[in-house]
Simulated scan of single mutants.
Amino acid sequence: MKTIRTYYLKSLRTTRQIISFLVLFVSCSLFAQTDADALAKQLQNPIANLISLPIQGNFDFGIGSAEGSRMILNIQPVVPFSISENWNLVTRTILPVVSQNDVYGKSGSQFGISDIVATGFFSPKEPTDGGIVWGIGPVFLIPTSTNDLLGVGEFGAGPSAVILTQKGSFTIGGLVNHIWADNYSATFLNPFFAKNFSGGKAITLNTELARNWTRDEFAGIIMLQGSKVFTIGKQAINAGIAPRFHFGGARSADWGFRTVLIFLFPK
């Protein structure tokens, strides 16, 4: 660092050049930080007008009676469409790639694709007067599982909704859906609370609750995720990591963690 600093000081031979360089450097730094802060806040909104490609890895261990393990890699693009002057349609698609071992007792190993979950939220472009952001629409379960132990294997559908509010650096909200299929009925609830910090940093308390009405099973996961927005070249990326605390359910894991990379494409 000292060598680089000396090189620049020798290069900038006049006071005017030094001042110009410092002003330019500070301006660029402030712009980058402000941009990262804005993107980090948008990411707390599941239906923000922001194209993104999250790649989420969920790793769980000590599952069920056979102490099984599972890795789920969720590829979940989010694409908003303007459908009128006042409304957006925000599509969220989750494609799970699964590798698991002895999850259902001594069931051996399975690897492949699970069922796709695709949601479309119709959402007003502007928050309500009270600052509420909301969206509602259909959710579809598409039977793409390559193994009976990796998914439901049936087409399903149901309603989905999301609601949140953002006050300063805080975000609080929740997402819910219910899916019916021929031999499947399940509710998913995802309340979340986030606090953003300068420099594109955030801490998010994320809870995932699932009720399988067909099997009369309930399970939940609590995660406390730290994340940060940064750039590689011109590509904006958000990276995060969180421990996963499981509760309820005969096949809950003893412990786990989540990693996520989100590629961002702001308009």
Rank of each mutant, 00 (worst) to 15 (best):
G240I: 03
G105I: 03
E126F: 04
F21R: 12
V229D: 08
T14W: 09
L89G: 08
L9Y: 10
F192K: 01
G131N: 10
A38V: 10
A210V: 12
P54R: 08
Y7L: 14
T14S: 15
V26R: 13
L95P: 06
L164I: 09
Q44F: 05
V90P: 07
S69Q: 12
M71Q: 11
E126N: 14
T34L: 02
V23F: 12
G137E: 03
E217A: 03
E154S: 00
G137R: 06
G220S: 10
S69M: 09
N190T: 12
S27D: 07
Q235C: 02
G199C: 09
T207M: 09
D37L: 09
S169Q: 09
L205P: 02
R5K: 14
W255C: 06
F230M: 11
T14V: 08
K2L: 14
S169F: 04
T91W: 05
S52M: 02
L189P: 00
I47H: 03
L209C: 02
I203N: 01
E217F: 00
N49Y: 12
H246T: 01
E126L: 12
L22T: 14
F265Q: 05
E67D: 05
S65I: 13
K167H: 06
F155Y: 13
G112A: 12
W213H: 11
C28L: 14
L141N: 00
A40W: 01
I55H: 00
I232Y: 11
R13G: 09
S109E: 15
Q235P: 03
I47C: 06
F257M: 01
K167I: 08
V139D: 03
I163F: 12
S185T: 04
G130T: 10
G68N: 04
N212F: 05
F245R: 04
I142L: 07
L24E: 04
L12R: 00
G220A: 12
D216P: 03
G153V: 10
R215F: 11
A194Y: 07
D102L: 00
S109L: 08
G64P: 06
R258C: 00
P77L: 02
H246V: 01
D148I: 07
P77H: 08
T6F: 10
D115H: 02
N49T: 12
N212D: 15
A38I: 03
E67L: 08
P96T: 05
E85P: 04
F31S: 10
A40M: 08
A253G: 06
N183H: 14
R211W: 10
A32L: 11
S227T: 10
H178S: 03
D115L: 00
H178W: 04
S99H: 09
F230D: 13
A66K: 12
I172K: 02
S227A: 07
V78H: 00
I94R: 15
L95G: 05
E85R: 12
M1K: 13
A32M: 10
G120N: 15
T91H: 03
N45C: 04
A157Y: 15
L30T: 03
P80V: 07
S109A: 15
W213M: 01
W134H: 09
V90L: 08
